[in-house]
Nucleic acid binder design. Structure first.
Length: 476
RNA sequence: GGCGCGGUAGCCAAGUGGUAAGGCAGAGGUCUGCAAAACCUUUAUUCGGCGGUUCGAUCCCGCCCCGCGCCUCCA
């Protein structure tokens, strides 16, 4: 089965094919840098990362643009409260965002587009819309006239036909002709940043940046546009209205939306205090790979119930896979290759691929890995695993890592020094020497001394495992 | 009210018209000087409830109950 995605536009699962040759032109809605992004935000960004990685695994070249909204109401308010310039304020949170993203091993898109660096493209887009009669001005602001776009509502599947200007709209509340009209350009206000334009000084409305930047980097029709479900309406609906009014062509062919993350079955909110950032969780001592694994392990269209129990389970799951990888690389196997193992490896890869191809069903893909790992552990226990089968197993783990990227530990020196400043980093040579001493003690049947050495190493975060091929150790 | 998503074992979570993947946790066991790791067995006669279609439904249809999201800024 070919690669398929659920398309919000058609409400159906569709086979994916890029418009032009082998390149996928993709636009995703990035962060608004008014604060630290929380793990709910990062669920969406992790989904986008998984999407990127799987597209590439499937042989596509990527041209991915992500915007950074660096001017909006909240930014203006927060920066003022922090007594910082907009520029300094957003620069700090932009940097923090990419630090967190790096901790979660999110690939950097080919283009990161800050809104304030693309004002001219937005101005051009608005002028184009004005020329086509899709806009009007009111009190110095420029609005998009929704009645000029009959298809409005096709993404969110809302029927706005019945709602006409004046019908149920409180005309005093807005300066808009129709309650659903949205602002393209906000009139200048005292104390707010503003740019001079042919249609007056002011700053961009939220939606226009995505249309303008997406089309300037990727052309009139994108292959994929992705974001969180909360963006379907009005943001993406408005993007379609703007873009298609300009080009009269489809703006994006596949619309992919990730579901929200909930915390302990509740909505995430500041008032409930259940609002976690990546750095909150890292400070609690959780591994970034575990956060990534947890966010990636639940298929993106399903609500993800974040719990600490789940985060701990993710940590243990990764440990199991790491232990398997360690066993593979440290065990001595008889020479040759067992064709049964090779065949089982190919089957695991196929199952993994089938899962991912099915609208990025990561749960299915993971099941393939775990079933495989258990089968291989059994094969090793029963001495059916051969030297050359190492490469079969390594290939399976490699493909897993292409997507999940959580086996290689983060910089352990840093992680450990934060967690246990006393413990420090014991050099490998010291560890090896202590292990030799313990082995000698064991040989002399001095188990008390042997266990003391093992306990001593454990205090340093070093776990020993006796195997028939000798002692294996790992950092906890 | 409109639009949309979901309710599967203690927790997380796949899935199919023919009788329930996987992970974590729990219990028992094998192995081990003891551990660790690994493996084995075990944990849903049952998939929110009630009807219907069908030889047969967790999966299709209807109704109901519950949770969540969007409809204003929001991943």
């Amino acid at each position: 089965m070919p690669l398929r995605f659920y398309n919000t536009l058609t409400q159906d699962v569709e086979v994916f094919r890029p418009l032009q040759d082998n390149t996928v032109r993709m636009y995703t809605c990035g962060p608004t840098v008014y604060n630290y992004a929380h793990i709910g935000n990062f669920r969406a960004f992790t989904f986008q990362d998984i999407l990127r990685r799987w597209l590439r695994y499937r042989g596509y070249q990527l041209n991915h643009v992500m915007n950074v909204t660096d001017v909006d109401d909240k930014i203006i308010v927060n920066a003022a409260q922090a007594k910082k310039s907009i520029k300094d304020y957003t620069a700090a949170f932009t940097q923090a965002f990419f630090e967190d993203a790096a901790a979660l091993r999110l690939e950097r898109p080919e283009h990161v587009a800050p809104a304030t660096q693309h004002i001219s493209q937005m101005v051009e887009a608005i002028q184009n819309l004005a020329a086509q009669g899709c806009t009007y001005q009111s009190d110095g602001s420029t609005y998009f006239r929704i009645s000029s776009f009959p298809e409005y509502g096709k993404l969110s599947h809302n029927d706005f036909g019945g709602i006409r200007s004046g019908a149920r709209v409180d005309v005093d509340e807005y300066d808009k002709a129709d309650a659903r009209d949205f602002v393209l350009w906000k009139a200048r206000k005292e104390g707010e940043p503003a740019w001079d334009t042919p249609f007056g000084p002011g700053r961009p409305g939220w939606h226009i940046e995505c249309s303008a930047m997406a089309m300037s980097y990727l052309g009139e029709t994108l292959d994929i546009h992705a974001g969180g479900v909360d963006l379907i309406f009005p943001h993406h609906e408005n993007e379609i209205a703007q873009s298609e009014s300009i080009t009269h062509k489809p703006f994006a062919r596949y619309w992919l939306h990730s579901e929200h993350l909930q915390i302990e079955s509740q909505k995430m909110s500041k008032s409930l205090g259940n609002f976690y950032t990546v750095r909150d969780l890292l400070e609690m001592g959780y591994q970034p790979e575990a956060i990534r694994y947890l966010l990636a392990s639940v298929p993106y269209r399903k609500k993800l119930n974040f719990t600490f129990e789940g985060l701990k389970a993710a940590t243990k799951s990764i440990e199991r896979l790491r232990d398997f990888e360690l066993r593979l690389t440290t065990t001595k196997f008889p020479p040759g290759s067992n064709p049964e193992i090779a065949g089982r490896s190919r089957a695991a890869i196929e199952q993994f691929e089938n899962g991912m191809d099915d609208d990025l069903n990561t749960a299915e893909a993971l099941a393939a890995i775990y079933e495989y790992v258990r089968a291989m552990n059994t094969a090793i226990d029963e001495n059916r695993f051969r030297e050359d089968n190492r490469w079969d197993a390594a290939r399976v783990l490699e493909i897993f890592e292409c997507v999940f990227d959580c086996l290689k530990p983060a910089d352990q020196a840093i992680a450990r020094s934060e967690e246990s400043p006393v413990g420090g980093t014991l050099p490998d040579s010291d560890i090896e020497r202590l292990i030799e001493q313990r082995t000698a003690a064991k040989k002399a049947r001095d188990f008390q001394k042997a266990d003391a050495i093992r306990a001593q190493l454990l205090e340093q975060g070093i776990v020993l495992e006796d195997t028939k091929d000798g002692v294996r150790w790992k950092r906890k």
